[in-house]
């Protein structure tokens, strides 16, 4: 059994297809006979890679010239389906990213399709596709299905599946026409800024060292970066210190930030709120340093140190540099 067709929303960093998109393609291949991709940019540079990951066709809007993906892509897809240019898929999969959420939300209204969010697994139950969402900080799994007559829209969390190339041929490029959206499409990106740190990327690093409010002050984050540097790790953060302006948002690990699954995650002065845990609980090994022996982070730590970060971390850096 399985579904006839799934559409996967693909995103890029401007050079390569985003990992989350390739992860979704791997899952989509398992559950549907035909897997096609839609994207809010020129697709030409990506057709080979997407084809290699199992996409048969890539529907692209072409360059959006600064317009936002949410409204542009959703309008183009809904128009194409409603005009009968393409057959509607049985389901859409989009990543839980800024643009993924925007596209999903606009598409949901246009097609009157439900959005099933925070999905970490998709399971076929006869002809039904069930999305599995962890709630209550990951202690309970909820399986949800679409009961409307329209395709379900699944928002998938990064690192839920493993990307895998299948060596298939280049995907066929197809056009998605955005058309003139008028006022509703009038927002424009004027400039783009990168705030990423040096060294390995947070969501790809083998080791991640994160700091939280327990560091006490912005200046103390320097020791997190130093420790990360000496381990070849990526520095990360809890939302508390992103909100406080100590580090940029691109460092944030958790529900609203990045999902990381490194070999080792080292949490320094982080309490372990459920929204932080959902972003790092999948790490192979977790080390936590926290002065409060009751901190919830210890419930997921393989090695827990009840201690002061200001004492433990400098000594750790010193030992590692010897």
């Amino acid at each position: 059994m399985g579904l006839d067709k799934i559409w996967v929303f693909a995103e890029t960093d401007g050079a390569a297809v985003a990992t989350i998109s390739l992860e979704m393609l791997a899952k989509a291949r398992e559950i549907a006979g035909t897997v096609e991709v839609f994207m809010g940019c020129d697709g030409e540079d990506y057709a080979t890679e997407l084809g290699d990951h199992g996409a048969e066709a890539v529907y692209c809007t072409g360059d959006l010239d600064g317009a936002l993906q949410g409204v542009s892509v959703a309008s183009a897809v809904a128009n194409a389906i409603q005009r009968g240019d393409v057959d509607a898929p049985d389901a859409f999969m989009l990543g839980t990213t800024q643009n993924g959420r925007d596209v999903a939300a606009r598409l949901s209204v246009k097609l009157q399709s439900p959005v099933i969010t925070n999905i970490v697994d998709l399971v076929l139950d006869g002809d039904d596709l069930l999305g599995s969402e962890p709630i209550f900080g990951g202690t309970t799994d909820v399986m949800t299905k679409n009961i409307s007559d329209n395709p379900g829209i699944f928002l998938v969390r990064p690192k839920s599946f493993t990307a895998q190339a299948v060596g298939a041929a280049e995907a066929m490029l197809e056009d998605l026409e955005v058309g003139d959206l008028g006022a509703v499409g009038a927002a424009r990106i004027i400039d783009t800024f990168a705030e990423e740190s040096q060294g390995p990327k947070l969501d790809e690093a083998n080791i991640v060292v994160s700091g939280g409010r327990g560091l006490g002050a912005k200046e103390a984050y320097a020791m997190i970066e130093e420790l990360a540097g000496s381990l070849g790790a990526a520095p990360g953060a809890s939302r508390a210190i992103v909100d406080a302006g100590w580090v940029p948002y691109s460092y944030q690990v958790g529900q609203t930030g990045k999902v990381v699954k490194p070999t080792v995650y080292i949490a320094c002065g982080i309490s372990g709120a459920t929204q932080h845990l959902v972003g790092m609980k999948g790490s192979k090994h977790i080390i936590a340093i926290n002065s409060d022996s009751e901190a919830p982070i210890f419930a997921v730590a393989d090695l827990g140190i009840v201690g002061d970060v200001h004492k433990v971390v400098p000594k750790l850096i010193e030992t590692l540099s010897d």
Binding site: Q112, S113, P114, I116, D125, D128, L130, P134, G138, T139, T140, D141, V142, M143, T144, K145, N146, I147, S148, N150, G152, K281, I286, S293, F298, A299, V300, A301, D302, L303, G304, I305, V306, G307
Partner: peptide
């Protein structure tokens, strides 16, 4: 437009060792 069909306890992560 959607229906919860199943609710289950998620596999939990075993806690490790904690040292002072």
């Amino acid at each position: 437009n959607q229906e919860i069909v199943r609710i289950a306890d998620a596999p939990s992560r075993a806690a490790g060792e904690v040292f002072e």
